[in-house]
Amino acid sequence: GAVAAAAGARVHRQADILPAHGNVPGKGEALWKSLAVTTGDVLAFVDSDLREFDPQFAVGLLGPLLTEPGVQFVKSCYDRPLHDGATVMPAGGGRVTELVARPLLNLFWPQLAGLVQPLAGEYAGRRSLLERVPFVSGYGVEIAMLIDVLEAVGLDAMAQVDLGVRSHRNSSDAALARMAAQIQLTVQARLRCDSPVADESGRLTQFLRQGERFLAEVHDVSVRERPPMVHVPEYRAQPA
């Protein structure tokens, strides 16, 4: 936050926005609350942990929205290197995408099969659309938004832009498993199955090696869903 402010950005603390609604951990909450403190007709979201950040990430995302009136949502695509400690595999990243998200989308929403990076954290959209879709907490936010945008405006209103190469830290297998669990719970909710926040479905047991034993760890991977911002009284009360 301090670095962003020093560079001239207007910085808001997530917990300070819409305080009456509480504060849910995770990226989805930050995205949802950003609608309440921004005023532009077009919004772009870019992950803050990227390495070798290029301003073209933002410019590329905004291009279709500024030049094609029919486009309402833009998703990024890119090569995603995987650093395994010894070598760099140019396209080895995105393991949750390939093993979980892509098979689920191809099976249940084949219209979205053409998206190269469905879980990409860089995307942009028109406020008039983003304020009408819900925001899921945690790692479910990207796949939920794709599905909800598809249902709201259709595939012809969606675009993707090649941003070249996206490098950031690579997660451990255990962290990827928790990510995968949240994505599956989110998809389950979109398929109108059992609630994704049910007590039992929101827990993931993992095992870590500790000497000669395996140590069990239980993680809460439940997801919560924020309503479309247009349903929030404080947001509706703001001047147009």
Rank of each mutant, 00 (worst) to 15 (best):
V3C: 07
V3E: 12
A4S: 14
A7M: 12
A9G: 12
R13M: 07
H21E: 11
G26M: 06
E29R: 11
W32H: 14
S34K: 05
L35Y: 01
L35S: 02
A36Y: 06
L43F: 03
A44H: 02
F45V: 15
V46Q: 10
D47N: 13
D47R: 06
L50M: 08
R51Y: 11
F53G: 09
D54Y: 01
D54M: 01
P55G: 07
A58L: 13
L61E: 06
E68K: 11
V74T: 06
K75Q: 15
G85P: 01
G85F: 09
G85W: 12
A86E: 13
L99Q: 13
L104V: 07
G114Y: 04
V116F: 09
Q117E: 11
P118L: 08
E122T: 09
E122H: 07
A124W: 00
R126V: 04
R127M: 01
S128N: 02
L129I: 05
L130K: 00
R132E: 09
F135C: 10
F135M: 12
S137C: 12
S137N: 09
G140H: 04
I143M: 11
I147S: 08
V149R: 05
L150H: 14
E151W: 07
E151N: 13
G154I: 11
A157V: 05
A159V: 01
Q160K: 04
V165S: 01
R166C: 10
R166Y: 02
H168C: 04
R169P: 02
S171D: 11
M179E: 13
A180Y: 07
A181H: 13
A189D: 15
D194C: 08
P196R: 14
D199A: 15
G202F: 14
L204H: 06
L204D: 07
T205Y: 02
T205C: 06
Q206C: 04
R213D: 06
V221N: 00
V223Y: 03
R224T: 08
R226Q: 10
P227W: 05
P227L: 04
V232M: 03
E234Q: 15
